[in-house]
């Protein structure tokens, strides 16, 4: 059962009736609330999305009481380390850089990064046609697809959220080709795409699709090849402070059990309209 409140700092208390006493602790989970469909803020200020429902189910299976707190993306890791909460579920991918400072559970979903552009703009015909290239499995193919896109991207402005795998990707592969503009939230680069301040956005394909499903964005589309592997990491997982193996075990087991009985896939279908769970 989920009780949603909007009191105070827009907290969502996810109460699992039996688990609270058994475990005797409240696990506080941070999310951004601005990365649809992973997590977003619905009209009236409630948090909602794939990870909000996933968190509720994971906590139920792990028999712990959970509380979801909203936290801006650019401070989400420092605040975890500072102990403002115990876990992060905010569409955060496992990367080497992040693993140097925090721990991760096993990943629950994984997807490629893509460009989003205006349908009638110069970038609408980016070559690649939605095909996914993995830098780890087919490096030559990925580099070739990227090179094919470069002439068209030359000199264009691309919006990306600050300190994400997507900004790392642009920095590593397209610096000098495109002008990279970094935003605090993806919603802010969406607004600037709409107002024409930038020519394209680069984010996860499902996040872009989630945005472009809205009527305001009917003239915008995904374009070009999509990329995974290398800087994109090993998938989206729960971020945890280092040195808390018990908590990691709780999340690992809950995610594995949801993967096994198909409920994770069902959630993915509900929020992403496709199965982006990780098959082993």
């Amino acid at each position: 059962m989920r009780i949603v409140t909007t009191l105070g700092a827009a907290l969502i208390a996810v109460a699992a009736a039996t688990g609270a006493l058994a475990q005797g602790r409240t696990v506080r989970i941070a999310t951004e609330g601005a990365y649809a469909p992973y997590n977003f803020t619905a009209p009236g200020g409630k948090l909602d999305g794939f990870e909000i429902e996933l968190a509720a189910e994971l906590c139920k299976r792990a028999k712990v009481t959970c509380e979801i707190v909203q936290q801006d993306w650019d401070g989400i890791i420092p605040a975890l380390q500072a102990g403002k909460y115990d876990a992060i579920m905010a569409g955060m991918n496992i990367t080497e850089k992040r693993e140097a400072v925090i721990d991760f559970s096993i990943p629950y979903v994984q997807e490629a990064g893509s460009f989003g552009v205006a349908k009638d703009g110069p970038l609408a015909k980016l070559p690649g046609d939605g095909q996914v290239f993995n830098f780890d499995k087919d490096n030559a193919g990925a580099v070739k697809a990227l090179e094919a896109m470069k002439p068209m991207l030359k000199g264009k402005t691309v919006g990306v959220q600050v300190s994400t795998i997507h900004s790392t990707f642009l920095d590593k592969y397209l610096k000098g080709t495109v002008e990279i503009r970094e935003y605090k939230t993806t919603e802010q680069h969406d607004l600037d795409l709409l107002s024409g301040r930038i020519d394209a956005i680069f984010a996860s394909a499902s996040a872009i699709r989630g945005t472009f499903d809205k009527p305001d964005f009917k003239d915008y589309t995904l374009a070009g090849a999509r990329f995974s592997g290398d800087v994109f990491g090993r998938g989206v997982a729960v971020g945890l402070r280092k040195g808390e193996p018990a908590l990691k075990k709780l999340f690992d087991e809950a995610i594995a059990s949801m993967n096994a009985d198909g409920s994770l896939k069902a959630l993915s279908m509900k929020w992403f309209k496709s199965d982006i769970t990780i098959k082993s």
Binding site: D74, G75, I77, Q81, V101, V162, S163, E182
Partner: peptide, 9 residues
């Protein structure tokens, strides 16, 4: 400064 914090924490 913000960017550096996000990178180095």
């Amino acid at each position: 400064a913000q960017k550096l914090i996000a990178q180095t924490f």
